[in-house]
Structures are given as structure tokens and as C-alpha cells.
Design a protein around this nucleic acid. Structure first.
Lengths: 226, 226
DNA sequence: TAGGAAGTGCAACGCTGATAGTAGTATCAT
DNA sequence: ATGATACTACTATCAGCGTTGCACTTCCTA
């Protein structure tokens, strides 16, 4: 009673004073860890920071994911899955039915490059993964690829193949064409939009995206444009 | 004698037992730090590891660069400068005099994508910079951009502009065209060649590069190919 | 109502890593 | 020779971080 530390037992003032209980912490943790890992990377992103961000005891991380490595691998696959699903829907919506090829592609490009704040951490995390790949287990890397990038690329390739077979495009290798389309539309932005940097103004984004689509369609050779 | 650690006083076996003396350690340090930072990034790359790699006392790092941050900023600018110089020479050599546009571009692409082991750490470092940009001072980031990527892009744009003015290309914005060319030729490789991953086989590299050049020139629109 | 599962706060351990001081040594210009 | 300069080895400090054990609380279920 005497040498009681002067630390009142604050009732852990949570936003909604959620009850301790069933496994709803897993989702919360994946979201919080995504934000931290995206901003700080694997080694700089500390367990304590993640626990604080997710409003969870750091002990829970070890109970749920075994440790930092397990958490990271779960996060990258989870984030890849969620964003891939959203992107695939976008691809199907804008490339699924073509009426005016150039107009539809331009619209697709603009949507593709419109930065969604909700997914910003995901793309930052992708940059972390690419930089840190040398320290991520090959199995985890492969799982991530399958869950995200490859799935999206496959969907784009499928749509391009279909459009080509309908006579609107001249495509030899649909996978390569899919990569080219994405690179032209968003490649530069993806690489240059550093975390924390103010995203480019809307008009500039549109200008770059449109130019990418036009290059995808017509290229730069003289006497080949319409 | 009993609990003596089994660490004999090795005479610091240097490759050439270089004499302690004049400031030739700066170059050595920049090279060693490049390798370590490239592989491990800023936070994981430890001063001790760098000192060991460069065969230099860790104290020298503080004497020469003030600390970890100073060393890092010196390294990224130095590496960017050196690689940019080599790349600019390549650009001038292969785009400086055009005889057969498509053939010359294809040759340029193949050279551009041929992985030079000497510069592998540089490109890994670039990925680290992009991922870690949120923790690098804006001034350092700008200095790096100016020393490397922007300089190279400007040179490519200049050549493309010249080729276009000679009537061989149809280019509205040479800067954008330069970005598109590089993205198409090497964009996918740059992003996918993770550190440590075995680089793609030569034939595959050529296939991707050639396809990029063709897309750059002709695009994918039907009825526009020759 | 008893038991188990999930979660929490806390303290502690061990390790790594950045940084700094210091004394000694080798080299070079004067 | 001498002093300045560059470098080194060694040591110490200080902080941060991953991880684990422990006791306790809360909820769900049987």
C-alpha cells in the first residue's frame, strides 16, 4: 500500500470501450500493422507502435501471429488480397464492355490512377516489400505475388485478350501487353509518389494517364497515328 | 588463460595491408556503404556492418560523415551520379545517331536491360530510397533526384526530341515519352528483380525489352501497325 | 455456474545498434 | 625531427526493441 506506484488504474479509454473477448482483434491488428509497416517498413515498424496503433496489447500480437515475422506475412497477403479484389472489379467494369476503345481505355486509366486514400498504405507497403524482398522468405513472397499482383495482371490480360480477339487490338502476348498498359498508365506515378509526398494534382495525373493510354494504343512511330 | 575468449589478436588482415594514413577511406566507405544499404536498407544497415564491409574503423565513419544519416545521404548522391554518367553515355551512344530507328531502339533496350553486376547494388539502393522516402530529408531526396534520375531522363528526352524533329518520331511531350520508353523497356524488370532473386535469363530479358520497344513505337491499336 | 478462450497490463531479459571518448600509431609536409 | 592529419582499437553509454512469463479480467459456451 505504501510503495504503490502513482499510476491510477485508468480504464483503458478505448474509443468504444470494446469488451475484451472474441477474436475481433485479428482484423484490427491487420489494419493497424498495415499502416505502420507501410510507413516504416519491417525493421523500423515496431511491435509496440503497431500495438498502440491498433489499440491492442502487444501480447495479443504474439498470441495471434506468433511474432513480428508472422504478422508481417499475414499483413502483406491480406492487403494484397483486398486491393486485388477492388482492382479486378475496376478492370472488369471498365474493360469488360468496350464501346469506344480509346475513350474506354482513357476512362480506365483515369480511374486506375485516381489515388484512393484508403489504399494508399497498401501501395506504400508494396514499395516496402519490393525493397525488402531480400529479407522476406521466398514462400511468403510467392504467396503475396499470387494473392495480389499476378491475379490482377491475369485479369487485365484476359480482358485485353478478349478485346484483341474481338478485333480491336493487335496483341501477341497478352501478359506483356497487360504489363505495358499498367506501366504506361501508372508506372511513373507508382514509383514517384513517395510516401508523405503530396500526390500530384488531379489535372497532372489525368495528363500522364491519358498520355500513357495513347502511347499504349498508338505508340510513337511517325506515320502510324490516325 | 582459462576463460580467455578464443579471439587471437588478428593483425587486421587487410587485402593489401594498406597503411593508415591519408583520406583514401572516403571512397572505400562510399562503396562499402552502398553495398550494405542496398541490401539491408537504412535502418537495418548497421554502422558496424558497413565498417566491416569497407574494412574501416566505425569511428572513421563518424569522422568522415558525421553519422549514419550523413553517410547515407552521401552514398545515395554518389551512387546516383556515377550510374547516371554511365547511363547517359549509353543513351548518347545508342540514340545519338539513328540509322534504322527500330533496330537502334531495340539495341538500346537490350543494352539498357542487360544487368551489370557492378551496378546491381545501385538499383537495389534505388528501391530502398523509394520505399524509405518518408524518412529521408526532402533536401536529400531532391539532391538525389537531380544527381541521378532527372539527369538521365533529361538526356533521353533530348535525344528523343532530336529524333522527332528529324522526322522519325511523333512526340508531343519528350519528357513523357522518355518515361514511357524506359518504363516499357525496363519498368517491369526494375520492379520485379528483387534483390537476391536470380536475374531473368538473357533470352527472357531480350524478349521483354524488344516487346517494350515495339510497343513504344507502334502501340497496340489495330490497323496502325505497318 | 464452471471452464475455457481471448485479451490485457506489467515487468523483465537479452540483444543490438548508434554514438562518443580516448589513447595510440602511421603517414606526410615542413 | 616535429607537428598535423587520418585512422584504428577499445571501451562505455544509452536507448530501443523483440520476446516471454505471469496474474488478472471479461466474455462465450456447455
Amino acid at each position: 500500500m505504501i510503495d504503490m506506484p502513482a499510476r491510477e488504474s485508468r480504464p483503458r479509454l478505448t474509443v468504444e470501450n470494446r469488451p475484451a473477448g472474441r477474436g475481433d482483434k485479428r482484423r484490427t491488428l491487420l489494419d493497424g500493422a498495415l499502416v505502420v509497416f507501410a510507413a516504416d517498413g519491417y525493421s523500423r515498424g515496431s511491435i509496440d507502435n503497431i500495438a498502440r496503433t491498433a489499440d491492442v496489447s502487444s501480447r495479443t500480437i504474439y498470441n495471434q501471429f506468433g511474432g513480428k515475422a508472422g504478422l508481417f506475412e499475414a499483413v502483406i497477403v491480406d492487403s494484397a488480397e483486398r486491393v486485388a479484389e477492388a482492382q479486378i472489379i475496376t478492370v472488369q467494369r471498365y474493360l469488360g464492355r468496350i464501346v469506344d476503345l480509346e475513350a474506354d481505355l482513357i476512362e480506365f486509366g483515369r480511374v486506375w490512377t485516381t489515388p484512393s486514400p484508403a489504399y494508399a498504405p497498401h501501395f506504400a507497403l508494396v514499395r516496402q516489400i519490393i525493397a525488402d524482398a531480400g529479407h522476406i522468405p521466398k514462400a511468403a513472397l510467392r504467396a503475396w505475388q499470387q494473392a495480389g499482383p499476378l491475379r490482377v495482371r491475369r485479369e487485365i490480360a484476359t480482358q485485353l485478350r478478349r478485346i484483341a480477339d474481338a478485333g480491336h487490338l493487335d496483341i501477341a502476348d497478352a501478359d506483356i501487353a497487360a504489363v505495358h498498359l499498367v506501366q504506361l498508365v501508372a508506372g511513373d506515378i507508382t514509383t514517384r509518389t513517395y510516401h508523405g509526398a503530396a500526390s500530384l494534382p488531379k489535372a497532372e495525373l489525368r495528363r500522364l494517364s491519358d498520355a500513357g493510354v495513347r502511347a499504349f494504343l498508338h505508340g510513337y512511330a511517325r506515320f502510324h497515328r490516325k
